[in-house]
Design a protein around this nucleic acid. Structure first.
Length: 207
DNA sequence: CCGGTGATGGACT
DNA sequence: GTCCATCACCGGA
């Protein structure tokens, strides 16, 4: 097995959430179900700082829904949105801080046929996992994967994949949130990657 | 290519 | 009752 297939361990997720977000680019999320395996190379993610973050589901404290985020890093926080979509986050940082990274887009690199059967509306291959709910649907992730430990050798894993250099990384501010100490660029994506989700403003490369 | 909008259900006030 | 960390479709240009 190549180095790219090595699963990322808990230490990877236990770091600062912005660092984890950036380092998740180019990594592979892999999900095994009875129907088969689909893997996605991440091209865009978004960081949520936790209880202190007005944009986070954890902002108003721990609830039954958000309990997973307050637990140890390396677990999946899956939530249901707009009555029809599932989205997946990976819990980061120290236990209790409720930091997490939302997986927003990527390229399907394994199980394209299965992904296409789950995403009939996708016209082009780049649309299969272009957007947080599309990515989740392509992977076959839903309610059952809520709380899954991605560092335990289970059906849902994050593999080392092919990480990107700083020159390939673009950052952008999250809409509607302004921190007291200035603007934090919460969104990170691979510049010029066609699988990055459509709504994109003010993209710029980091120095 | 672009913007507007309906669909649809659960969490929380 | 209100608010969504969204998507797909439709019509206009």
């Amino acid at each position: 097995m190549g180095a790219g297939l090595t699963p990322l361990g808990r230490d990877f997720f236990a770091r600062d959430v912005l660092q984890v977000a950036r380092d998740l680019l180019g990594r592979t999320v892999r999900h095994r179900t009875p129907a088969g395996v689909v893997a996605v190379r991440l091209s865009e993610v978004e960081a949520y700082a936790g209880e202190s973050d007005p944009g986070s589901h954890a902002f108003r404290g721990r609830t039954p829904r958000t309990a997973v985020m307050f637990g140890p890093p390396g677990h999946a926080y899956v939530y249901f949105s707009y009555g029809m979509h599932w989205c997946v986050n990976l819990v980061c940082g120290s236990e209790g801080t409720a930091a997490a990274v939302l997986l927003r887009a990527g390229q399907v690199v394994e199980g394209v046929d299965l992904a296409r059967s789950r995403r009939v509306a996708a016209k082009r291959p780049v649309d299969l996992a272009r957007g947080p709910a599309r990515l989740t649907q392509a992977l076959g992730v839903a309610r059952e994967q809520g709380g899954a430990d991605v560092c335990a050798g289970g059906d849902l894993q994050v593999l080392a994949g092919s990480p990107v250099t700083d020159a390939e990384v673009a950052w952008g501010p999250r809409v509607g949130v302004s921190g007291p100490g200035g603007v934090t660029p919460w969104r990170v994506w691979i510049a010029d990657d066609p699988t990055v989700s459509a709504y994109r403003v003010g993209g710029r490369r980091t120095p």
